[in-house]
Write a protein that binds this DNA or RNA. Structure first.
Lengths: 231, 231
DNA sequence: GCAAAAGTGTTTGGATTACACCCATGC
DNA sequence: GCATGGGTGTAATCCAAACACTTTTGC
């Protein structure tokens, strides 16, 4: 038996928070919005929204992403759920965090009806955020770092064509370590990548070769079980 | 602006599903219940319950665990959330899965008001379950396997005092591989464990030494950053 | 003694590390 | 030429796999 009526359970709301990670200037960044309404008006926050009663969760997260970036068909990774009874001042709201990895230069960000301002913020410069969003963001960033070690998700953050040094710097930022150039290249020797003839432009030193991730070949090798991405 | 009234968002319910993992006879097992009520009456299912409007999520999961096992103060690990709009026939119910790791021999399991029967089922013998519980269980098991590789959670499943072979067999089952005895022992050489004088009893071969996990020493070393559990 | 599993040592090859060196470009 | 990073080779070391061997118990 329950201590309350069955129907009284159906009095909660849930939201998705959608953490959008990008990479530029050697740093992993998250898209933050400045809230245009109470509660926590004028605080920076992770974009998120309530989920409609008939809407699927990842769909809702994709909707938030679409509104802010115009991007669709981006894979949403599920993070954790956060449900402390008092985390939202207006009622019981449980939030399910999702995160998306995108290429910063591929689109224009737009503020939305519920955001006054919007900006990319490097993960080592996150200010105080609304609600429990500092906690949500840092837990989700840990998950991202985990994935960077075990899955080739770095290529969702890097430009379609990138230099090996850009790739190395991404890992150096995420893992907060310095790496040896020669050793890094040995480590990624078996990652399926395409070497292009194209070179870096407008640099005042020897231009680096551009690479792109060979997704097809990667899927093949994983299916044949003779390769497992590992950093 | 929202397409529906703000209050209409507060028409959903949350549940927690609480996957209880144990280890015996060389296999990782999950505690399943036979449902005593509709929907899915008489189906096997993962134990779970609705969350009270003012209840914290991990608290609710602990409540479910307590009712079935009498155990409290067990750390609940969060798994994923599952929220397809039609996953529950009686309304929109989002479930947050948690999992607990316990020592099977440390307690008596008891059926509860909402369960007709209850049993331990090995992870390679899971039957068809109610709702989307097959999916929830297999996703959560993947997470457990992940944790077994990166955190010393195997000691929550093993008896307080265990043999190195029992530990090896746990990993062999989880990773679905066979391991070399000598190499396994080299790999765990730096895991902080206490070797006891006590030996295995009632075996018809040379009795093995019993070990236990040195949690205090582990915490120390992790704090000093000179050790990181890794299998 | 024999069976069975506990427990340990050795060899080998591949990966990781540290470090050195040469190369191509802009100025 | 020089500064700057791109790109590669080598030697030392560590680690993991394979496998063999010894030890201790019950019967």
């Amino acid at each position: 038996m329950y201590l309350i009526n069955f129907s009284d359970f159906f009095t909660s709301a849930f939201s998705v928070d959608c953490i959008i990670f990008g990479y530029s200037e050697g740093k992993i960044k998250a898209l933050l919005i400045k809230r245009a309404m109470e509660p926590y008006e004028n605080f920076w926050a992770v974009p998120g929204d309530l989920v409609y009663p008939a809407e699927d969760l990842p769909q809702a997260a994709e909707r938030v992403l679409l509104e802010l970036t115009g991007l669709s068909n981006v894979h949403m990774h599920q993070s954790q759920s956060f449900g402390k009874p008092n985390r939202h001042p207006n009622g019981r709201v449980i939030t399910i965090a999702y995160f998306a990895l995108i290429r910063i230069d591929d689109f224009e960000i737009k503020a939305s009806s519920w955001a006054d301002d919007i900006k990319w913020t490097a993960m080592d410069e996150i200010p105080e955020l609304a609600f429990d969003h500092n906690f949500i963001l840092s837990e989700t960033y840990s998950l991202l770092k985990q994935k960077l070690l075990n899955e080739p998700v770095c290529f969702d953050l890097l430009p379609e064509r990138f230099t090996l040094n850009e790739m190395q710097q991404l890992y150096e930022f995420a893992l907060e370590t310095e790496m040896d150039k020669a050793n890094f290249r040995k480590k990624i020797k078996y990652v399926p990548m395409i070497a292009h003839d194209e070179k870096q432009q407008n640099v005042k030193h020897r231009p680096a070769k551009l690479f792109s991730f060979n997704k097809k070949e990667y899927s093949n090798q994983v299916a044949k079980k003779d390769y497992q991405f590992k950093m």
